[in-house]
Design a protein around this nucleic acid. Structure first.
Length: 591
RNA sequence: CGGGGUGUAGCUCAGUCAGGCUAGAGCGCACGGUUCGGGACCGUGAGGUCGGCGGUUCGAAUCCGCCCACCCCGACCA
């Protein structure tokens, strides 16, 4: 490719919208172009890298028995009603109508469509396992697109779906994908670490996310430096150490606490550690009215009172799971007051037995307690009266809960549940997720096969996704320096970036043109900078674009009968005789 | 959806607080010339609904109101 004809231009100044390194570099290099928030065009260089990424993914999927298909993006809403996800994914779905006013959605993910394919094409256990995948556009009306290509509203995803006859088969499929994912990220030069993740309200079994660790990641994960335990903060477990569990219960005492509405203020005023207090947090939980598969779904909304030790925070993912709620929303103070709570002095004391009602009177409030706060004795808790708190509150004697479970958020330094070692908290970007769905979709959508006994059984599914643009962004995040991108050899759009200094001089032009032709004939992809630009501009663009090998043809070199070769990250360049240039390039690329 | 920020030339920004002539700079772009091994220089030129609508005023990029877009932090995800 001649640089002079390459579509797209490199930028000296970065558009102000870009903050993360990958976003800045991809824009500066002219690889992608924004259209609106979270929606980008791929220009030739960006497209070239994405094709290579897709090819790596394809090879690893095929190697594990995946078969590539292509499903539509435009899907009738009925398909999503069948699984109930027209409701549970309502916020994210892009909806469109055809000219007859029929509803469609732009596919956000394709479990439903694959189940339809399964139903049409699979009858017997003899057809299993089946692994099908596509690499295709997904559409999600994300609340907040972010970080350039990190979170998009239209993006490309490799999504593979596994169908197995039983859970043992699913374990095998899952392991295959797990291994394939490790190889894919490895080949793309993006270090990732698998972590335990949240399976959500859909009740799947195991799920792992592959996380690329970076400070501007959007996920928080906990890592045990001793035993290797690794988990998304959403699910991370830890050792809960009671601080006051051994004390004998003392009588409750009401005290005045004017103006003390936070745990920190309360703890300071009373001179007790925050672990001596019981914190109250309010949520509004939405529940699907019927099980999945029901065509007519509504949601019921219920206020939730959460009690947790004062020094800890609520893990909303855990809370949602123990409640079985579809959605969870933190209640603002005013809203909590409206729901009958005394914000700042609330507690579960006296709440447990009483059927509370919210404004709509739709549902009874539920009390959820963290399983540590219930073990502590003689805590300070709200009195449910303004400016009053209670001393020596004890679970069981003074208050009850509907649910006692682990709903606490793991933090830096908390002890590993496996081995007791203090854990590290790191931020990261989720590169992909592997997910044991189980029989959820099969049951919701009636996808069965006949087993050896001729009895219908629900098929056991898994789903496995990788976002390719996000992976591209991570490749750049993980492989760049001050000057620009440093492509891994496997993904570079071109192997060689040939710079002609003074292409107007006949001898330079002649040698450069001939070398361009010879390299191309030798099957080596070359980007040939034939532009009438100053050397500085060309060298800087070469660094920015990041091809593995730079070849310089210049008057200075030609005087000595050589061309110059320099690896993108090499400190020094070396020379090779003009006549031997192709061989030298081959040699340099072989490493 | 909550919090914060920004909208002026293709890009980066000044000008807005204290309203006042044909709205500026650098980069980029076009043409001519001189240069050119690490983002050169001179000259000429093109390029603007000052995010939009409404209001105040003799007069609005500037003041007021509403709306929109984009970015960042949260809730959500590949």
């Amino acid at each position: 490719m001649r640089f002079s004809t390459l579509f797209g231009e490199t930028l000296r100044q970065v558009p102000s919208e870009a903050e993360t390194p990958s976003h800045r570099l991809l824009l500066r290099a002219g690889m992608v172009a924004p259209l609106v928030a979270g929606i980008y065009s791929h220009l030739p260089l960006g497209r070239a890298v994405l094709r290579k990424i897709e090819q790596v993914i394809r090879e690893e999927m095929d190697r594990e028995g995946g078969q590539e298909i292509m499903m539509p993006s435009l899907l009738p809403i009925e398909v999503y009603q069948a699984s109930g996800r027209d409701q549970s994914m309502a916020d994210i779905l892009f909806r469109v109508k055809d000219h007859r006013d029929r509803d469609f959605v732009l596919g956000p993910t394709h479990e439903e469509v694959t189940v339809e394919l399964f139903k049409r094409n699979v009858r017997s256990y003899r057809d299993l396992p089946a692994l099908i995948y596509q690499i295709a556009s997904k559409f999600r009306d994300e609340p907040r697109p972010r970080g350039g290509l990190i979170r998009l509203r239209q993006f490309t995803m490799k999504d593979l779906y596994s169908f197995d006859a039983d859970w043992e088969g699913l374990d095998v499929s899952y392991q295959k994908m797990f291994g394939a994912y490790q190889r894919i990220f490895d080949r793309c030069g993006v270090p990732t670490v698998p972590v335990l993740a949240d399976s959500g309200a859909m009740g799947g079994k195991d799920t792992h996310e592959f996380i690329y660790l970076t400070d501007h990641g959007e996920d928080s994960c906990l890592f045990c430096p001793n035993c290797g335990y690794a988990a998304n903060a959403e699910v991370a477990e830890f050792v809960k150490e009671p601080a006051h569990a051994d004390e004998a219960p003392k009588p409750v005492e009401e005290i005045d606490t004017p103006g003390l509405y936070t745990i920190a203020a309360l703890s300071e005023h009373l001179g007790v550690p925050e672990s001596r207090t019981c914190k109250a947090v309010f949520y509004s939980a939405a529940f699907a009215a019927e099980g999945a598969g029901s065509k007519k779904q509504g949601t019921t909304v219920q206020p939730v009172f959460v009690a947790i030790r004062g020094d800890m925070d609520v893990n909303e993912a855990k809370l949602r799971n123990v409640l079985g709620a579809a959605e969870l929303r933190y209640m603002e103070e005013a809203e909590a007051m409206k729901a009958g709570f005394v914000a700042g002095s609330a507690s579960a004391v006296g709440l447990g037995a009483e059927p509370g009602n919210n404004e709509q009177g739709t549902a009874r409030m539920r009390v959820v307690a963290d399983d540590l706060v219930t073990r502590e004795r003689n805590l300070v808790a709200g009195a449910n009266k303004l400016d009053k708190h209670l001393l020596n509150v004890n679970f069981g004697r003074d208050w009850e809960a509907d649910i006692v479970a682990d709903i606490a958020l793991a933090k830096e330094g908390y002890r590993c549940a496996n081995c007791g070692t203090p854990m590290d908290l790191r931020r990261g970007i989720e590169m992909g997720q592997v997910f044991k769905l189980g029989t959820w979709f099969a049951e919701a959508m009636g996808a069965t096969f006949l087993d050896r006994e001729g009895k219908p059984q629900p098929v056991v599914m898994g789903s496995y996704g990788i976002g390719t643009e996000r992976l591209l962004a991570a490749v750049v995040e993980a492989n760049h320096d001050e000057a620009g991108i440093v492509w891994p050899r496997s993904l570079a759009p071109y192997d060689v970036h040939m710079v002609a200094i003074h292409p107007d001089k006949p001898d330079v032009r002649e040698v450069a043109e001939r070398l361009y032709e010879e390299l191309s004939d030798a099957g080596i992809p070359v980007l040939y900078d034939d532009r009438d630009e100053t050397p500085g501009v060309k060298f800087n663009d070469a660094d920015l674009l990041g091809m593995p090998l730079r070849v310089t043809v210049s008057p200075r070199n030609l005087e000595k009968g050589v061309v110059e070769l320099k690896g993108r990250t090499a400190g020094e360049s070396r020379t090779a005789p003009v006549g031997d240039a192709v061989g030298a390039v081959r040699e340099a690329l072989r490493v």
